[in-house]
Design a protein around this nucleic acid. Structure first.
Length: 388
DNA sequence: TCTGGGGTCCTAGGACCC
DNA sequence: TCTGGGGTCCTAGGACCC
């Protein structure tokens, strides 16, 4: 039998900011109602993480800051610090890796480790408790560790009572610990799926687990039905993936402080996101064959458009021009726009160019422009050229 | 209360080819 | 003149995750 741990940092961004502030001699924001958000002055920013006292007041992640302030006018709002978070993440990941090299980072604040061999002859709960305590004493923040015989069960277990806890969810505990939970608590069941299931009287994970698969297929489609049915029964044979998968797409988006109608403003935003996305693919040595863009209206409806290029590119101007062309096809130039986004996909590392492109005199100019942009963006990019 | 930003995967329909 | 079925690629849209 496999033994999998899922390690989940409690209120990660908030804990990590708190650690930094405590190191700097400032009060511990974990002890008061506090949240991490984007730009606190931006009335459209939302909450990325909330402290336990804030959660007790009903404030939670993804809630607009303006709403949280109405609940708690004295709420402490701190802007996130991405560079610091990356360091905290590396710190806890490296401790976990000491427990098992078979590690899959699931997000910045979560990972799975396969402990099947390392736990042989030991009590998994004791080992998990040691891991949790080591992270707390060395790094100053708490985690939950879920222990189970597969990734799904470990992840479900880490979501039980928080913070600073170890929970098990073995296959023979599924009926007792998992089946009474609401369907929404099952991984991959979001708001829409929950609504659909509730419409048919499927309330708990146990209901899902014992449901006729044909019935479930009619509700959510074949593939999803299979997965939900397996997971609701606690089954999951997916391995702990140690390889970091290559990105399949890159995107960037901008939400305006006020809904915009001025084409110049929209174009400036499109230009900005195009620069960011193109820079990222060049940094990672990709070229993209598909460019997509979208606009979001005030009522949150999204219109999106995508197009295939005749050959892959990493040139900002080419990507931007495709996006501009698509924008003109989906926007009348008048309707207010809340958000604009641009993405690239169908990525390749291949680097061949057809003669016709070489003949384009603008191309060298575009490349040169991109090169200068990249130099300004990432000082670390200089390292690659230091021998020159 | 009024909703960020960055990803992955799936489905469905149409075009086109054989 | 009107008809088949399979395969692949593309696009749009929707769901989920953190």
């Amino acid at each position: 039998m496999r033994i999998i741990f899922h390690i989940d940092v409690n209120s990660a961004f908030l804990s990590w900011t708190a650690v930094k502030k405590v190191l700097e001699g400032q009060p511990d924001i974990r002890l008061v109602p506090s949240v991490i958000s984007g730009d606190p002055k931006d009335r459209r920013s939302i909450i990325a993480a909330a402290s336990m006292p804030a959660k007790k007041l009903g404030i939670k992640a993804a809630m607009p800051v303006s709403m949280a302030l109405r609940i708690c006018p004295t709420l402490v709002i701190v802007r996130g610090d991405w560079e610091w978070y990356k360091r905290c993440s590396e710190g806890f990941i490296s401790i976990c890796r000491n427990y098992s090299p078979i590690l899959q980072q699931f997000s910045i604040d979560e990972c799975f480790i396969d402990m099947s061999f390392r736990c042989a002859g030991h009590d998994p709960v004791e080992v998990a408790t040691r891991l949790k305590d080591e992270i707390k004493s060395k790094l100053g923040f708490t985690v939950n560790v879920g222990v189970g015989s597969n990734k799904l069960l470990a992840k479900m277990a880490s979501d039980f009572e928080k913070p600073d806890k170890v929970h098990t969810l073995w296959e023979d505990e599924v009926q007792e610990k998992m089946w009474p939970l609401g369907v929404r608590d099952l991984l991959w069941v979001g708001k829409k799926t929950e609504e659909r299931l509730l419409d048919y009287g499927i309330r708990t994970i146990g209901d899902l687990a014992t449901l006729d698969i044909g019935h479930l297929t009619r509700l959510v489609g074949h593939k999803f039905a299979q997965q939900l049915h397996e997971n609701a029964n606690g089954r999951d044979d997916s391995p702990v993936e140690t390889e970091v998968a290559e990105a399949k797409s890159y995107s960037a988006e901008r939400t305006f402080a006020n809904d915009y109608t001025d084409p110049k403003d929209i174009d400036r935003a499109l230009f900005n996101v195009a620069c960011i996305v193109a820079h990222r693919i060049r940094r990672d040595d990709f070229r993209a064959s598909t460019v997509s863009m979208f606009i979001k209206h005030k009522d949150f409806t999204v219109v999106q458009k995508q197009t295939s290029l005749s050959q892959p590119t990493d040139i900002t101007a080419i990507i931007l021009n495709e996006a501009r062309r698509m924008l003109s096809e989906i926007w009348d130039g008048v309707t207010p726009i809340r958000q604009v986004g641009l993405g690239v996909s169908k990525l390749t590392h291949e680097n061949y160019e057809q003669m016709s492109l070489f003949e384009d005199p603008k191309l060298e100019y575009y490349r040169d422009w991109d090169r200068r942009f990249d130099e300004r963006q990432s000082p670390s990019g200089e390292r690659r050229n230091r021998r020159e």
